[in-house]
Design a binder for these strands. Structure first.
Lengths: 169, 169
DNA sequence: TTCTGAATAGTCCAGATTGACTATTCAGGA
DNA sequence: TCCTGAATAGTCAATCTGGACTATTCAGAA
């Protein structure tokens, strides 16, 4: 559902073909979703069947023909509805990485600490990488700001956890 | 992969059947994953085929026989490996709800604000609900602490966003 | 005692997802 | 010019996922 909103929103700004869409999402929207290429193509086909998109073959140079999608009025209507829903709702995020925390007591304390420090390192690196990104234009910047805020909070929490575990030895 | 860690970890503490496992996960681990019942059964079957679990039919009262799973030594080995990996790694969380934020400029500013306030309300309610939960025993408490910390950060961020948008009118 | 709705236990199958693959184009080096 | 590896564009088959379903048990109301 939200992946459809994502694709519609991009097509609203500009006609694009599948590869292009996937490329953009992978480069700029990794904090929202992890959309694989075949899934993107599948979604585009589905939305075309529904009449939300109008594909047209396009030739560029002598590359093989690509299917370029344009959003239809029905697609725009769907976008509007999905957007309103999305903005008004709080969607939970799932923390796969916390499953291990639930079983932390199965690990010898020193090893647990060592591994958590490893996690801390990659998390800090990720945050540093993100902080180095030059400011983007438009609403996309909110995504980066949010991600930064979120990673900062994760790092804080991880540090508290490590401190706690260190205290107990 | 992480869902397997989750199931193995529970079966390590106690033999259980599918319904029981799913029930527990739904009640206590919603912050880590959203594991549907049929998926849980599917995973249990797969792990059994791999030799990680040993199912045995169990009769309780005159209920229909249930398949009760016990973790095998191979399963314990898999658990250890998965746990170490999980603890040492930072897994990104995906914020489906931010897709809409990327397209916020497609909404009239007053409406965007109204909808974000709606989101704020449900987020605050969720946090309040969580804060009311009495402390749990053992490592599971980390999950609750983390979730609380995370929701607090989300709420802070949402408030900043709303303020920003209000300032621009 | 009988009935009803909730809880328990699990399954089916339609549809979503993705790892791995094909095939073409293109830039640059030898 | 020819070759190689990266980028472009998309597809296939196998697996994973979950909405909707069946069926039994149980507690309490009538």
């Amino acid at each position: 559902m939200e992946r459809e909103l994502l694709l519609l929103g991009l097509l609203r700004r500009e006609d694009m073909h599948g590869y292009q869409l996937h490329e953009f999402i992978e480069r700029n929207m990794t904090s929202c979703t992890d959309l694989k290429k075949p899934t993107a193509y599948h979604l585009l086909e589905k939305m075309t069947e529904r009449g939300w998109l109008q594909p047209s073959p396009a030739q560029a140079g002598n590359r093989p023909a690509r299917r370029v999608y344009r959003i239809t009025p029905a697609g725009e209507a769907a976008f509007q509805a999905l957007l309103r829903e999305n903005v008004a709702t709080h969607y939970p995020a799932y923390f796969t990485g916390n499953i291990g925390l639930a079983y932390l007591d199965a690990l010898p304390a020193p090893e647990a600490l060592a591994r958590l420090r490893e996690r801390h390192t990659s998390l800090a690196a990720e945050l540093a990488r993100l902080t180095a990104v030059p400011p983007h234009a438009g609403s996309l910047q909110w995504l980066i700001d949010h991600q930064r805020h979120h990673l900062r909070a994760e790092l804080d929490w991880l540090e508290t956890l490590i401190q706690h575990l260190t205290a107990v030895e």
